[in-house]
Each structure stands twice: as C-alpha cells, then as structure tokens.
Simulated assay, not measured.
Amino acid sequence: MTISIDTNQRPAMPISFYQLLTQELLNTSPKDANAITLYFRDPDYSPERGGFHPVEVRLEKQFDHWRLVYVTDFAFHGYELIKDIDICFNSKQVYSSLGGWINHDEGEELIELFSNNFLSYHHMDVYQVQVALG
C-alpha cells in the first residue's frame, strides 16, 4: 500500500502520521476500493467519563496512490458529539470548534499539537481501529 506524501501539500501532516496510517492498513486489502476510512475509537470515551476523542481519517485513491482527504477529531460538547478539529486537505483549511475556520499559521500549530497528541495516544494503545472500504 502506498500513501502519497506531498511535502508541498497544505495543510501538512508529519511523516510519522503517514507511517502510522500505512501500518494500520497493512492488514487491509484495499485493491478494489476507491476510498478508505479509518475510525480510531476509545471505547470508554463518554460525556461523563471523558477519555480520548474519536478520530476519523479518510483516504481516496488517486491513480495508484492514496491521498488524505480529511482528518477529523470529534468531542462531546455536552451530550452531543461534534467536530472538534477538522483538517480538510481538499479545501486546504483547518477548522476548530472554538475558532471556526482558522488562518494558516494557527492551522499549522493546531495540526502539530493534534498530531503529536494523536500519535502519543495511538502508541499508548487507547484506540480500537476499524477500517471501512468504499
């Protein structure tokens, strides 16, 4: 499986994020799929107990490579699960539930913070991962 990494792509994700996705997809057979969605879930996350936010990652096939479409972090606000952070690679924008669509510099800072936290949580094995092929 090849996930194309465009170093000029904005917003940018760290190489370690792509390596994690590749590792998660090694046991998947996406040859006939045109899209892949990975769901990272902490089964104990709830409005009462807190926990680690669920994260959804969407990839779509472009020629013979996969490219990121979006990375979305969800959080409970009260008892409603909403998009807390949304990194959209098609529109090249970053959204935060606290600030709406944010400027490039703030977006890069938020991506760095999100990525570092997400990778740390993944290494702590807090997530159950599901893969959906489309």
Rank of each mutant, 00 (worst) to 15 (best):
H65P: 00
Y39L: 15
S46A: 12
K61P: 02
A33F: 07
P30Y: 08
R41V: 12
L38A: 09
F63D: 11
T37Q: 11
Q62N: 10
D44I: 07
F63H: 03
G50L: 11
N27T: 08
Y39C: 12
P43F: 08
L68P: 03
H53D: 15
S29E: 14
I36G: 04
L38C: 07
V69P: 00
F52Q: 02
Y45T: 07
G50M: 11
D64N: 13
G50P: 03
G51F: 02
R58E: 15
H53R: 14
T28G: 01
F40T: 06
G50F: 09
R49W: 10
H65I: 07
A33G: 06
N34A: 13
S29Q: 14
N27M: 03
E60T: 08
H65D: 15
F40S: 06
N27A: 10
R58Y: 12
D64F: 11
S29L: 11
S29M: 10
V55C: 06
T37W: 00
N27I: 02
R41G: 00
F52G: 00
A33W: 05
P43S: 11
V69D: 05
Q62F: 09
K61N: 06
F52K: 02
T37M: 09
P47G: 04
V57N: 01
E60R: 05
L59T: 05
P43C: 11
I36V: 15
V57G: 01
D44Y: 11
K61E: 08
H65T: 15
E48C: 01
A35K: 06
N27L: 09
T37E: 11
K31W: 01
P54R: 09
D32Q: 03
L59P: 02
F52A: 04
I36P: 02
K31D: 12
F63M: 04
D32R: 02
D44H: 10
D42G: 03
Q62W: 06
L59N: 03
Y39M: 13
L38V: 05
G50H: 07
F63K: 03
G51Y: 01
P47M: 06
R58M: 15
P47F: 05
L68T: 10
V55H: 02
A35V: 00
N34L: 14
I36H: 03
S46F: 06
P47C: 06
D44F: 13
K61V: 07
S29F: 09
E48A: 12
Y45V: 10
G51A: 01
V57I: 08
P43M: 12
L68I: 14
F40V: 08
S46T: 11
P43L: 13
P54I: 14
F40A: 08
W66F: 12
Q62C: 07
R58C: 13
K31G: 00
K61S: 09
A35L: 01
R58G: 03
S46W: 05
N34T: 15
T37C: 07
N34H: 15
E56S: 03
T28F: 04
V57Q: 01
D64I: 12
